[in-house]
Amino acid sequence: MSAQHERLRMMLTAALFAAIIGIFAQITIPLPFVPITGQTLAVGLAATILGSRYGALSALLYMLVGAVGVPVFSGMSAGMSIIFGPTGGYIISFVLSAFFIGWYIEKTKATVPQAFSANLIGMVINLAFGTVWLKIFAELSWMEALAAGFLPFIIGGIIKAFLAAWIGIEVRKRLASARLLPQPTKNRTA
């Protein structure tokens, strides 16, 4: 298969994962400021399976589709008001988090423990960026922002990081063996 065809396939797969993030965003547990959602699990899966570039692309596409008005954000919401609202930092940080997770896995062995470490750090990136944004845009104190935007998500984040690592590595292995993912230049993928 030519490099151009492979690139097109990966871009379409990234778009599919953007849709998956939007679907997982509808799995919500409402909390006062920031709901618990399935978005972070989907972002972790995208990054674990697709790697840094295409994982980040899927998160970016998700953010852009929601920003222009397609109701893909939590609670079927959309628009720039969400991006520039109190919870927008979490959405923006999906791109950074996905890139880091994919990069980390690309630089190490694609194993569940390495993917779990990457997803844990990605969770911290997401929660830290989102909490700072929440503090600024909701005009909260640091303690209020941590209590509303960081602490309630730690246990769920650890569980989602493990699920993203475990499921992501299994799917990645199967897609690689079916030659549906680009073959790495180094022999690092399982």
Rank of each mutant, 00 (worst) to 15 (best):
M11Q: 11
M11L: 15
L12G: 11
A15D: 05
A15L: 15
L16R: 05
L16T: 02
F17Y: 02
A18F: 01
A19K: 06
A19E: 09
I20F: 04
I20L: 08
G22K: 01
G22A: 08
I23G: 02
I23K: 05
I23E: 11
F24Y: 14
A25F: 03
A25T: 03
A25M: 02
Q26L: 08
I27R: 02
I27V: 13
T28P: 00
T28E: 14
I29E: 08
P30W: 13
F33P: 00
P35S: 13
P35G: 11
P35C: 15
I36R: 00
T37A: 14
G38S: 11
G38K: 09
G38E: 05
Q39N: 08
T40A: 11
T40F: 11
L41H: 03
L41M: 06
L41D: 01
A42C: 10
V43R: 02
G44S: 11
G44C: 08
L45Q: 06
L45I: 06
L45W: 05
I49Q: 01
I49G: 00
I49V: 06
I49L: 10
G51L: 07
G51V: 09
G51N: 12
R53T: 07
Y54D: 07
G55L: 04
L57A: 15
S58Q: 04
L60Q: 09
L61K: 03
Y62M: 13
M63K: 07
L64M: 12
L64F: 03
V65Y: 10
V65N: 11
G66M: 08
V68E: 09
G69N: 07
P71A: 15
F73G: 04
G75C: 15
M76K: 13
M76L: 14
S77W: 02
A78G: 06
A78Y: 03
A78H: 03
A78C: 04
A78R: 05
G79P: 00
S81V: 08
I82Y: 15
I82G: 11
I82C: 10
I83N: 12
I83A: 11
F84S: 07
